[in-house]
Amino acid sequence: MNTQKHDFTAAPVQIEELAPAARFSLRVRPDGRAALAQALGLDLPGGIGDRTADGGREALCLGPDEWLILAPEAAPLAKAAASVYADAPHSLTEISDREITLRLSGPQVLDLLASCCPRDVEAMPEGRGCRTVYDSATVTLWRDGPTEFRMDVWRSFLPHVLGLMALTKAELQAGL
């Protein structure tokens, strides 16, 4: 009875802002998927939540015709896609500045996410991603490891999201 966990030294979670990378929203119909994949040099996974990575580029399927594409550089990717536009009409919109990516990690990162994500994040397999909601902000969540995530947050929502995360981090540090 009345046991208290007070461990102020442990860091339950780390919250870091990652440097911007090139980010695109790709929209294409199923019959154009293969052509885009070839042009981008990156397999476009077919299942919502599935991810692929190749040569520094990453793709996350967010919807039946929607992929989030990450690349070290924007211009080559845009050029590659443009080359197949006539045969495989699509929309490739640069959104590198729309979101800011957080790296979330640490032994209690699942608790941090469970504070404001209503979906079962714990059940999300490693190597997958999804668009979901964190409190009232739409975010894209990438699970990179058992206790490692990335979260893309729309730029203007970031102060609110970070404010909530700071509260939860302090709560986790309190150890109750």
């Binding site: 919502i48 967010l62 919807g63 039946p64 929607e66 999804c130 668009r131 979901t132 909601v133 739409t138």
Partner: peptide, 8 residues
Amino acid sequence: RHIHGCGR
């Protein structure tokens, strides 16, 4: 609409 998800 799965607005905070696949968008459909």
